[in-house]
Amino acid sequence: MTELAQNLIDGLGRGSIYALLALGVAVVFGVMHLLNFAHGELITVGGYVALWTLGAGWSWYIVTPLIVLSAVLTSLAIERVAFSRVRGSSDFTLLLTSFGVHFVISAIFLLYVSASVKPFDRPSWVTNTYSVGPLNIEVYDTVVIAVTVLTLIGTTLLLQRTMFGLSLRAAAADFDTARLMGVRSDTVIRGAFALSGLLAGIAGVFWLMRAGSISPSAGITPMLKGVLAALIGGLGSLRGAVIGGLVLGLAEVLLRSRLPDSIASLTEGVVFLLIALLFIFRPQGLVTVKHAVRV
């Protein structure tokens, strides 16, 4: 029982980060039908910002907003340079474009910085824990969960209460109609990329705090978790993305602690198998989105 509770807390911490990543992926997918394989690069860029600023002796309190800011700016820049040119193209083109962006960015770091993994200082409290009854809770997990909840509340308010949020949801439901109703596609798409960058930035801060290092290929894992979680939740659903993230995080933690030692190191493989099974039996993901098909 204690162990289960412990797993749940650990899994929620991990799942929260995935949820933020997945939500960022889903927001962009909603307005452009683009699954952004370059989403992880937002964290990579933030990581190098962290490396340089922390190396210069700045504290995490100053570095944190810089990481988030760099992610937002990178997201907007990618949209301007690459994605704005392929708007409305086929899925195939969109996917490969984002894949190309992923490669170009990571290769630039590979070329002009270094291929090796560079460490930086983590904040001192990251590894601290405190006890509640029999449970050992990490300060880190607590902060992650709290910030995620606040971010989700903020995002919900943004989407529900502002004109931008309304445009974005309208565009996600039916882009062409939304445009006809006067929603400006440029504004909505850029706004979506900014929001996506903001969410990736927040997730990135936590990701980097835990990792304590950066390398050109560091973006791959968070990107993959993000798109997988969005898919598990049901592509096109923002709520689904958050649920997908939490489910993926919980599944990973539970499996890693429950699987016999001999295959515990293969958790990723087992999780993938489960996902493949999920799609065989529930191909639309956990949260069903009704697509109005015009025929």
């Binding site: 993959l224 798109v227 592509l235 993938f272 996902i275 799609f279 993901g285």
Partner: peptide, 12 residues
């Protein structure tokens, strides 16, 4: 869910 979903599975 369209070809996008299939692509993510191949990536995974």
């Amino acid at each position: 869910s369209g070809a996008v979903a299939a692509t993510v599975i191949t990536l995974a």
